[in-house]
Design a binder for these strands. Structure first.
Lengths: 345, 345
DNA sequence: TCAAAAAGTGGAAGCGCTCTCACACCTGTC
DNA sequence: GACAGGTGTGAGAGCGCTTCCACTTTTTGA
């Protein structure tokens, strides 16, 4: 049981004028006091504090935003359908980290979803209208030209993952995907595999391209040159489909690098369905290590994708940019990856 | 290669005044035209449209919001730590559906996370300040008194899941959790189980309490009265822990109802670890059927939790409330559940 | 043909806030 | 005692938009 509540404050919201009147000061002073004011006497501050709490005052964000030109919110742009966003651990990890950092800074997060690769008018209008103080772009696709567009807008923005073009225009944080691909190839080679294929990601995403490039480089370095590539869409079903296609074309495959664990999980299904044992017949290396890899059977050997660190870092850089604490020059940060050995390779 | 872009519009945003000037009309007319204007001549409309596009005009949301008292965004209140939100398929399904409906209506979603059960000052301040036009509350806990607080605020709001108290104060949509618990008990009884336990959810959530109540009712109806209950926290680890505790106390258990599939997955681990076969030694029924159940081994017999439909419905009701299209009287909607039979029972 | 109604328009008043600026009031210091 | 330098304070000017209201123009009906 709780004590009886005090009578409700009037439902129509109090304004700063009301606070000023009750506190017996001017609106200007009330404003200063409310905003953790410098240049406010202790007496005035106390009076305003009291008035705020009796009136249950809460500043009108629109009015404040109108004059400060800040919105205290940042937009997270995700050019993917809802299905993937709330399903793929990559986004879960990213959003989790972002929202944690934003909470520290009393910033709100506005999620801007767009159909795959199509950063629509709506999103762009939103950003152009300065609804948000900055943009964090993740998982963008080649055709959306986001880096250029954001650079044009002049809106503070940071990419999670290398942008397609214009990587010199904008700050970004990325995993060392090339190195990851190379490590995967090496691991498979070290195990003795020689007929190695890969299920790469969509061709319009830099992460896919970079992982593929690294994988090719790794194989080339060992003189294993035949290119066995299929493309998936970073989903379980897509991975399964791509793997089946790959197996049909190259039935003698003995090693497989799959560019995400979700797809690798599909790949395991395909391998099982076609009567292949992992890792005895075909060794598999995934990518991400975000909770999926440890629960497949067999558990996946994979590459760590430090998405939480990336998102954390990216968000902090964005906040600095917004606050004008960082130089305008675009920065790139590349996070290391590492092989996590389990049972599939 | 694309054609050369036209020279950039001035980076300082155009205002409605600029549009009016360029279009050769008054600001009032420009405003009407921009807002899909009634009472605007075709000529004026065309002139404004042209001006808007040459100036690349986008209305300042803060200014608009200041006068209309709308924000065109709705708050989704989730009193859970980020970890659960972006990890539990329950939230994934909910957020997915919500964001889909909001997109239809050109509304933005603002995610308000709060530590478990503690709907903080921050959230409340946000809502009181009318940062959002309405609130959708999900997964709330007993102590937060959200229903009362929102009713006091007079902010349009809808609950996903029955609120603790004040269910007469606020509109909500819920799954028929009691019926679900009953069905689970029946399924286990029908299989011949007689020493049936349950891993319930947290005691401060209505979904947990309702499922437990239904389960008890189902057992009571069959005259099986012994109460074997442990509580988990809707996570895999929590489910495993609770199951171990339950098994320690009741080693002869032959049936188990686990109040979420995530916890059930933990329960399967515990059963396997203690050398019990599912369903031969212990039959298991889960709850949710949101993608987890089909991938456990054995796949879980479970109860369908129509979260997408719930969230969809709840969001639409909220929008109606905001638009004043629904009567003020709180409504309750209860969605049916059903047993999905797989291999664990 | 003319009055009445309808349609379109612009002036101007705010929405609630921040912040510049001018002013009043205190210290100290020579 | 006069002056410089603080430190608080309040008046007031907007931020960019919507909308009321009064007005002019056009359309309509008898």
């Amino acid at each position: 049981m709780r004590p009886v509540e005090p009578p409700d404050p009037p439902s129509t919201n109090a304004t700063l004028d009301d606070v000023a009147r009750v506190a017996g000061v001017s609106r200007a002073t009330a404003s200063r006091a409310v905003n953790g004011g410098a240049k406010v006497s202790a007496r005035a501050q106390a009076a305003v504090d009291a008035a705020v709490s009796t009136l249950n005052y809460s500043p009108n964000p629109a009015a404040r935003s109108l004059v400060t030109r800040r919105t205290d919110s940042i937009a997270v742009v995700v050019p993917e359908p809802e299905d993937r966003v709330f399903t793929d651990p990559f986004f879960a990890g990213t959003l989790r980290a972002v929202s944690r950092v934003l909470a520290e800074h009393e910033l709100q997060m506005v999620l801007l979803l767009a159909p795959r690769g199509a950063v629509g008018d709506r999103t762009l209008r939103y950003l152009r209208g300065r609804h948000a103080d900055g943009a964090l772009v993740t998982s963008h696709h080649r055709q959306d030209r986001m880096a250029h567009r954001l650079a044009e807008l002049g809106l503070p923005s940071v990419f999670c993952g290398r942008p397609w073009s214009g990587s010199n225009l904008v700050t970004y944080v990325d995993t060392d995907n090339v190195e990851g691909g190379r490590l995967a190839a090496e691991a498979l080679l070290a195990r003795g595999c020689r007929r190695i294929g890969t299920v790469a990601g969509p061709e319009d995403m830099t992460a896919s391209v970079d992982r593929l490039e690294g994988w090719r480089a790794g194989l080339a370095a060992a003189g294993v040159l035949r290119d066995r590539v299929a493309h998936g869409d970073f989903t379980v079903a897509g991975g399964e489909r791509a793997t089946r296609a790959l197996l049909e074309e190259h039935p003698d495959l003995d090693g497989l690098f799959v560019a995400s664990d979700l797809m690798a999980s599909g790949a395991l299904n395909a391998l099982r369905a076609t009567g292949r044992r992992v890792p005895q017949d075909v060794a598999v290396v995934g990518f991400d290590d975000l909770g999926v890899a440890e629960h497949t059977s067999p558990p996946l050997t994979t590459l760590r994708n430090p998405v939480a660190e990336m998102a954390d870092q990216a968000t902090r850089m964005l906040i600095q940019q917004i606050r004008g604490q960082s130089s305008a020059a675009p920065v790139r940060v590349v996070m290391p990856t590492a092989l996590v050995v389990r049972e599939s390779c």
